[in-house]
Design a protein around this nucleic acid. Structure first.
Lengths: 303, 303
DNA sequence: CGAATCGATCGGAAAAACCGAACGGAGGAA
DNA sequence: TTCCTCCGTTCGGTTTTTCCGATCGATTCG
């Protein structure tokens, strides 16, 4: 049995006439007779009562008509669905993101994406860069918003710069250096340091450690919380000072100050990362929406 | 697009291999490539990512697979449904019945029918013979359980005897003749009569009128209720006497007596009536169940 | 009773589905 | 690295299916 059988049968069942249905389908009436006959043979029951003047549905044909109509309709819908899926207008999309880095800009992009692609099932998963790398590799997420994964990952992943940030000194507002417009790193040599856990973000940690080494000291790290909010809380509680990307000030309260470093620290980049593999259309669409907002994101992050 | 495309695509999507799927379908692998290719062309999107070593579903293919599987399954279900409909195992069945005549035997037959054909949507409609005739003609009911429609209907309807009944005198238990084993009709010549409305059942009414005429009198009809229960109530209230089929005693309370007539009245028949037209399988099945119970019905009605 | 219309049937033509074989690319083994 | 194997694609030729025009029998209508 093929859809052709159903389509032909439906046409006859609607018109209750082989000739009219044949005309509508642009086929000869003989073809219709033949096809309906074959269908009835396969079903094993007559679907249409046909005297030479009247055509009527049998009870079996009546039941079959309802089903056949739905099947043919669903076949059309299935094609539409596949087409939409190919365009990224439906399907699934899972994105890993670094909360501290994108909490300011991600909502806007997600809102625009949802407006344009309301039928995509979107999963936003806050993850550390390391977990993002693993998740991308295993296909659990399609895109990552993260610091760079480091050298050697360029073959496996494609990274696109979203915005670049600078590291700042994070001080409690009562810290002796809090009033200075810029903070020299070596002036913090004797302060205790609260740094984001190395296990969660080795790249960030090692960058900071290298900066200190260049400034002529090795930081005395007294705490490594696994949440940036905890880092800031400890600094505010005068447990120590910290070095963090400027954008984390979006998480901070009034009792903290963020001060540029002197000498200026290197930029650290937030990147949109994807696996070098066929990209789901949903991911491609999300990237496009994000790229349209690049200008705005960079302006926001600089301000 | 035909079901063949869906079946072939599904096989490949399940095995993630053209060769394996081809073997399973007993076709050459080339035929599969061709068919999937045609399908993708019609959809306008790739459904399968195929490098020369691995086959994987695209997002579009993933969405399409779910739909295609359901469509193919429904196609099979539709055939089953039509087959069952042709056997009377599913569908609709509407039966008109004369409440007073079949209240004793119909429940048993209906119960058996429901057990054997649980998926048939059964409508039981209490109707007078006249309404049954019209409903049968218009196809609103498929079978009727009724007194005969009268001469001249044999060409349009086929009637099968279910059981035959006798008319009885119906008296209030305090009626002077209530104690007699048999009642001579002419002894009731001066009694007021309560008879079932002629408009609702002309055949019955005219039969009774003819009996009285044969007994030498014309009955003085003081009421013609349209419900048999009302007839009995009025008789019990001593509004008059009545003549009714013996089986109506099933509706009666203690205050009434049913007495055979003398001379014995002619039998009146309850028939199963159907239109001379192609019979729905559900109706055919019901008739079979009823015929299996004919013996029991007749014994019950005589008792 | 003829004329017209309908669906079924038949033989041949057109279209499709199918097959085997050759081809090219990718991964694994030597 | 080179060779080998496996897989999907592509290409002619064949088989099967589908379709068409013509015709037939049956029924309705004038």
């Amino acid at each position: 049995m093929e859809l052709r059988h159903l389509r032909y049968f439906l046409a006859v069942a609607e018109d209750l006439s082989f000739r009219a249905a044949a005309a509508r389908l642009h086929v000869a009436q003989a073809a219709l007779s033949q096809t309906v006959r074959d269908l009835e043979e396969e079903v094993g029951a007559r679907l249409l009562d046909r005297s030479s003047r009247h055509v009527a549905l049998t009870p079996a044909g009546d039941a079959f008509q309802v089903e056949a109509a739905e099947i043919v309709k669903r076949a059309g819908d299935a094609v539409d669905l596949a087409r939409r899926a190919a365009r990224g207008q439906t399907g699934k999309l899972a994105i890993g993101f670094l909360g501290s880095a994108v909490s300011l800009c991600l909502p806007r992009v997600v809102r625009q994406y949802r407006e344009r692609y309301p039928n995509v099932e979107l999963d936003l998963l806050e993850m550390t860069p390391e977990r993002q790398q693993a998740a991308l590799r295993e296909g659990r997420i399609h895109l990552g918003l993260s610091r760079t994964f480091g050298a050697g990952s360029a073959r496996e992943f494609e990274e696109t710069l979203v915005y670049s940030d600078r590291l700042c000194a994070v001080l409690c507002s009562v810290h002796p250096h809090a009033e200075r417009p810029r903070v020299r790193l070596r002036d913090l040599a004797n302060d205790p340091f609260v740094l984001f856990a190395r296990a969660e973000a080795p790249g960030l940690f090692d960058t900071i450690a290298a900066l200190c080494r260049d400034a002529g000291f090795s930081p005395r790290v007294v705490a490594q919380p696994t949440a940036m909010a905890t880092v800031l809380t400890l600094v505010e509680a005068q447990a120590g000072v910290s070095i963090a990307p400027a954008c984390t000030r979006n998480l901070a309260s009034r009792g903290l100050v963020f001060r540029p470093l002197s000498p200026a620290s290197p930029r650290i980049d937030l990147k949109l990362i994807r696996k070098r593999a066929p990209e789901p259309p949903t991911a491609r669409a999300f990237r496009e929406v994000l790229f349209e907002n690049l200008e705005w994101i960079r302006q926001t992050m600089e301000g």
